[in-house]
C-alpha cells in the first residue's frame, strides 16, 4: 500500500510501504534525533502530516526498545502538532498492532483519508489506535 498520494499532503517518511512497517518505524525515530527531519513547513505548503506507527507506544513487554521508539513518535506527534498549529498544519498519527491480522490496509487508508482531508483542519495531535479495541485495557489510550 502506498500512503503518500495526495498533492500537498506529506507522510513522513515518504513512499510508505505497508511491508516496510518496522523499517519505517525506525526511520521515524531517527527523525527525532534530527538525522533527517525536514525544515518546518512553509505556510501553505505542507498542511497535513500523518505518522504511521505501532501500538507498541502503549508498552510492549517483549520488546521495550520498540515501545520506546513508538512512544517517541507519539511525543513527536504531540509536539509538532502544537508547534505548527499556528500555521494551520495538522500533525496526527495512526497506530496499529505490530503483530496482528486484524487490521488491514483498508482500515488504515480510511483513517489516512480522514486526517489528510484538506477540510479537516481542526484535528491535530491525535493518536488514533486502530486495533479493534485490543488496546483498550492499556491506561494511556484516552
Amino acid at each position: 500500500m502506498r500512503a503518500a498520494w495526495v498533492g500537498d499532503v506529506a507522510y513522513r517518511p515518504d513512499g510508505w510501504e505497508w511491508s516496510e512497517f518496522d523499517q519505517n518505524t525506525k526511520l521515524l525515530v531517527d527523525a527525532t534525533a534530527f538525522h533527517s527531519w525536514p525544515v518546518p513547513p512553509a505556510h501553505g505548503s505542507l498542511r497535513r502530516v500523518v505518522f504511521l506507527l505501532t501500538t507498541d507506544w502503549l508498552g510492549a513487554g517483549p520488546d521495550p526498545v520498540l515501545a520506546a521508539r513508538s512512544a517517541a513518535a507519539v511525543g513527536l506527534t504531540h509536539s509538532l502538532a502544537a508547534l505548527w498549529a499556528g500555521i494551520g498544519t495538522t500533525v496526527n498519527a495512526i497506530a496499529v498492532p505490530r503483530r496482528s491480522n486484524l487490521v488491514t490496509s483498508a482500515d488504515v487508508a480510511h483513517a489516512l483519508r480522514y486526517f489528510a482531508d484538506p477540510l479537516n483542519g481542526y484535528v491535530t495531535g491525535q493518536v488514533l489506535n486502530i486495533c479493534g479495541g485490543q488496546t483498550l485495557v492499556a491506561a494511556l489510550t484516552a
Binding site: V103, D107, V123, G125, C131, G132, G133, T135, L136, T141
Partner: peptide, 8 residues
C-alpha cells in the same frame, strides 16, 4: 476496526 477511541 476503530473502536473505544477518543477523537479530539
Amino acid at each position: 476496526r476503530i473502536t473505544g477511541q477518543t477523537l479530539y
